[in-house]
């Protein structure tokens, strides 16, 4: 047996470092009141105790640091752990919070992923504590006049209107409705923050994937949709319905 670690052609290496992405629940804190947080968390866990048992969790401090100066991270971590979560990181904290977290062995996640919607682990009535967007960012309609090219991503906090085509290999997302006045060949995801009333309107549906509120269809499921005809997509009791206009 060769002990050369480079020898990968004849045998599988002992270990490989790979990167992979996971969906982890995010605890967004808007108000610094440890008792209230503990109570609300207990209420959430009680709704689905098996689901949350030993579930990984990341704490988002972004809006908390804007309103509160002193945050007792150690106490906060204690509360989360008392509810049987396994804390795997914080994000959105100030440098001093990051230092404390690191000292306590908690990794600091980058906060730049905020444009990525965090899928809700399951259908729970949204509690006022876990409201993610400030009001002025909501309901803003975004209008795109140029083609959305392969590899590009567009995110709208409200509705999204595309006056051109959406190419294969691109991704458009909106918290509200999506209107496409061209051919949709890429991915379109409406109601990404959990709005099951949102719809997708499209003048030519050749999409790789369409989704409303996390319920999706891939292009294989769209085979019987004739191209070149305008359609709308909406949810009817957890079913994604496609209807000619």
């Amino acid at each position: 047996m060769s002990s050369n670690p480079q020898n990968t052609t004849t045998q599988r290496p002992v270990l490989e470092l790979k990167s992979s992405s996971f969906t982890v629940p995010l605890l967004v804190l808007n108000k610094y009141d440890l008792h209230l947080i503990s109570d609300q968390l207990a209420f959430k866990v009680q709704q689905a105790p098996e689901f949350f048992k030993n579930s990984p969790l990341i704490i988002d401090l972004d809006s908390l640091v804007k309103s509160t100066k002193e945050i007792d991270l150690k106490a906060l971590f204690g509360i989360v752990r008392n509810h049987n979560f396994i804390l795997v990181g914080i994000r959105g904290g100030k440098p001093e919070h990051n230092i404390i977290a690191n000292e306590l062995g908690i990794p600091v996640q980058s906060a730049t992923q905020t444009n990525r919607p965090t899928p809700k682990p399951q259908k729970i009535e949204p509690a006022p504590v876990i409201d993610q967007q400030s009001d002025n960012e909501k309901n803003q309609t975004k209008i795109i006049t140029h083609p959305v090219r392969s590899g590009q991503r567009v995110y709208a906090h409200g509705d999204l209107i595309v006056l051109s085509q959406v190419s294969a290999g691109s991704e458009i997302m909106a918290e509200g409705n999506i209107h496409i006045y061209g051919t949709l060949r890429g991915r379109a995801l409406a109601g990404v923050q959990g709005n099951n009333n949102s719809r997708i309107f499209c003048s030519d549906l050749q999409a790789e994937l369409v989704s409303i509120d996390g319920i999706y269809k891939i292009s294989d499921d769209l085979n019987d949709i004739s191209t070149g005809k305008p359609v709308q997509l909406f949810l009817n009791e957890q079913n994604l319905v496609i209807e000619y206009l």
């Binding site: 392969s150 590899g151 290999g169």
Partner: peptide, 12 residues
């Protein structure tokens, strides 16, 4: 497809 990707990069 690759050209489409390139066009996206050109515009951004």
């Amino acid at each position: 497809r690759d050209s489409d990707r390139m066009l996206g990069i050109l515009s951004s």
